[in-house]
Simulated assay, not measured.
Amino acid sequence: MGLRQNRNFWLQVAGAVISALGTAAAPVATAFAILYAGGSGTAIGLVSASGTLPALLFFVIGGVVADRLPRHHVIVAANLVSAVAQAVFAVVVFTHSVRLWELVLISAANGLAIAFRMPATEGLIMRSVDRAHASKAFAIFRTALNGAQVAGAALGGVVVSSFGPGWVLALDATTFVIACGLSVLMKAEGRLRRRAGMVTELKEGWGEFAGRRWLWSVVVQSAVVNAVGVGAFMVLGALAADRRLGGARDWGLILSCDAIGMIIGGLLMVRLRPRRLLVSGVCALVPLALPPAAFALGSSLVVICVASLLAGVGVEVFGVNWMTTLRQEVPHEKFSRVAAYEALGSFGLTPLGAAVAGPAADRFGLAGTLWCAAGAIVAATALVLTVPDVRKMERERG
């Protein structure tokens, strides 16, 4: 089936784009809701970590569920949970009763939804396209998603500055509801497989993951990059924007530039078909060291925006090559379980990175902490390139 006739694919693109508008704006609203209530960088990191931890605890369960049930039904349920969580967050902000423990619980509910939505989404998009159209489809999907993130991040900064963070959170809740409606319209992706026991299926997924050296090697690299990325960029970046730049509006612009870079990277990958899938992918993550380095240098807003744009290009080049590799190498009936173990490994250190970023900056200084983050990203990439299976992975011909 060609991409134009692929109903599930386009419904998934539409749902992802709509929900991404609110999701991209939400980090701006969350960070500045905490800062406006008198919170600190440590509080932002704690709320971020509280959302990631439940996701990590339930990713593998979410992967099994997504391989057992119609994946679009799993996505609907997860989106409904996120819609309720963000609506409650909006009410808390509107009533000026922002308390840290409430934000931690709301963030945890969102993290639980992510644990089921992420494996289901990745499994569904991979199942929806055949190998011949996989690379192009993934590039289109991610480019559309990133376009929405550009608009969402910019909108978040403007709305927070003009009207306050509550309205952004209400918008986020609404977009999740609309995405649910689009997911309901999807058709089941074929016959459901015969179910084995939960433990058996977890073991099967782990065997598929652990038996591929290239897979877990890149996941280790991603674990380091994501940990310092969330800590150094999302937490300390927001803090630096508040202290040294123009606050929420400038932070929204920086996030928008990151998403613009992803769009550029996605457009490049619609046409480009690198033969060495993983070499080109993992090397593309090196530019993620540029934003923390630019913040550490005390660079101007323009320089930081350029650094964020280049980082965004790198993320997208990696993402398309990585998804293409998984689609090429992993059996479709195990997509969601492998995706769950991949997510668990890739984001396993993220709560730690988010939680320690603020205290580390308080103890060692903002610039020193950001330089350490940039160095860790470069070092992780250099190490993963020493793995022969990573260097040898090639795109299938045809």
Rank of each mutant, 00 (worst) to 15 (best):
K187H: 14
G265S: 05
V338K: 06
R244Q: 12
M186G: 07
E342V: 06
A188R: 15
P359N: 00
V150S: 07
I75T: 05
L383K: 00
F209P: 08
R4W: 11
T42Q: 11
I18F: 02
G62N: 00
R271K: 15
E102G: 14
F59Y: 14
S161L: 09
P27Q: 07
A113E: 09
K203S: 14
F116Q: 09
V384K: 08
C305L: 02
E122S: 14
G231V: 05
P27N: 05
V17H: 09
S50M: 11
S50Q: 01
I75Q: 10
A134H: 06
D250W: 04
A367L: 09
A210C: 02
L366F: 03
A14G: 12
K334Q: 14
R249S: 14
N8R: 13
D172A: 11
L112N: 10
M323V: 10
G398H: 00
F9P: 00
W167P: 05
A120R: 03
R195N: 04
A367F: 00
R127A: 14
A374T: 00
G197R: 12
A307N: 08
A188H: 12
G164T: 04
L105R: 03
I264A: 15
N8G: 12
A374F: 04
G181R: 01
R4Y: 11
A340P: 05
L344E: 05
L290W: 03
A376C: 13
G261I: 09
T369R: 05
E102K: 11
P291W: 06
S50I: 01
V17T: 12
A340C: 03
V158N: 01
I264D: 04
A382C: 11
S308G: 14
A374R: 01
E204P: 02
W10Y: 11
H73L: 15
F335T: 07
V218A: 02
G2A: 13
A311L: 08
S82Q: 13
A90E: 09
A83Y: 08
G312S: 08
D389L: 03
T350I: 06
I254H: 04
L3F: 07
L352I: 15
V306A: 13
N226L: 08
S346G: 13
L3M: 09
A153Q: 07
L57V: 14
S280L: 14
N146M: 11
G39S: 04
V390Y: 00
A311F: 00
L192E: 13
A360V: 11
T95M: 12
F163W: 14
F176A: 10
W216R: 01
F116L: 15
L349A: 12
L288H: 03
V230L: 13
C305W: 00
L103I: 12
I34E: 09
S336C: 04
V317G: 00
W322N: 09
